[in-house]
């Protein structure tokens, strides 16, 4: 019997909840669980994880029966580039300094939008550099390394 997923969004959501819940139960069991009267560190993780598994299952089953909207496509360009920009910032701010981190992040981030124009990006980068160095590092005294040395 072919099962048709009537609401793909709910189905995916249900699966995600189920997976999170499963992780919680499995990891929670690694800690001392205790009893209801004397709860250990693992009690809540296991109970909540089980609850999440249950909820995820119900949502997924409901999605087979009740119609819902289709899944939208994932816009790869904005998602990947924005996340990359943030990741590059996180990776470089301590090692290469705030100047490099800001520049890289702004350039990569700007690439995420097809509306960006390169001349503007240069000016924007300079403005943001001014802010991160002037306002945040010197003005507010945040302990950023300026340059890679």
């Amino acid at each position: 019997m072919k099962v048709r997923i009537r609401s793909p969004r709910d189905f995916c959501a249900g699966v995600i909840f189920l997976l999170f819940g499963l992780c919680a139960v499995l990891m929670g069991r690694g800690y001392p669980v205790g009893t209801a009267r004397n709860m250990g560190a693992g009690y809540f993780p296991v109970v909540l994880g089980a609850l999440l598994v249950l909820l995820g299952t119900v949502i997924s089953i409901k999605s087979l029966m009740i119609a819902g909207e289709k899944l939208e496509n994932i816009g790869l360009r904005p998602m990947l580039l924005v996340l990359l920009a943030i990741g590059v910032f996180a990776g470089s701010v301590d090692s290469l300094g705030i100047v490099a981190a800001t520049t890289l992040m702004t350039v990569i981030g700007a690439a995420a939008s097809p509306e960006s124009r390169w001349r503007e990006v240069v000016v924007l980068t300079l403005v943001l550099l001014g802010l991160s160095v002037g306002a945040f590092t010197y003005g507010l005294g945040l302990p950023f390394k300026l340059l890679p040395f």
Binding site: I86, A90, V93
Partner: peptide, 19 residues
């Protein structure tokens, strides 16, 4: 224009979280 605004928001959020 949003294309100029969002990198600034990104920067503020990153610095904010870092701080």
């Amino acid at each position: 224009p949003y294309r100029l605004l969002y990198p600034a928001i990104l920067l503020f959020c990153c610095i904010g979280v870092y701080s």
